[in-house]
């Protein structure tokens, strides 16, 4: 009984995961098609610099300067959809729309760590 319940949950969360993944992929692809505004990206990135050092150094927080745009977009969408869970990132992306995510990803892709 317990075992089959567990199996059922696994199946259920499996499909849930799959559909989340599909949703994420779709949004990432759409965002990567936008043409971001560099001045907007630079302004928005000010919020990130408090934790992610522009120099790329890291102790306790991963560096993001120089990450490819598709990686950053995907990571931010994963925080948005709850695939990744870190509260400081989750609240941050909650108020970022597609234009903001595109601008940020383009900005960091341009940075040299």
């Amino acid at each position: 009984m317990v075992a089959s319940l567990a199996a059922m949950t696994a199946v259920a969360s499996g499909t849930e995961e799959d559909s989340l993944r599909a949703e994420a992929d779709e949004r990432v692809a759409a965002i990567l098609k936008l043409s971001p505004d560099p001045a907007y990206g630079a302004y928005l990135a000010g919020d990130c610099a408090t934790c992610h050092r522009a120099s790329g150094g890291s102790d306790g927080i991963p560096p993001i300067a120089g990450l490819p745009a598709d990686y950053t977009v995907n990571a931010l969408i994963e925080y948005k959809l709850g695939i990744r869970e870190n509260e400081v990132m989750v609240v941050r992306v909650a108020r970022l729309g597609d234009a903001e995510i595109a601008a940020l990803a383009a900005h960091f892709a341009d940075q040299k760590p």
């Binding site: 408090t50 934790c51 050092r53 150094g57 890291s58 102790d59 306790g60 927080i61």
Partner: peptide
């Protein structure tokens, strides 16, 4: 806690460097 250490380095660089 480790995040806070990263933040401290981050805000100091962002403010003074």
């Amino acid at each position: 806690y480790e995040e806070s250490i990263g933040w401290y380095s981050g805000i100091i660089e962002d403010t003074f460097a």
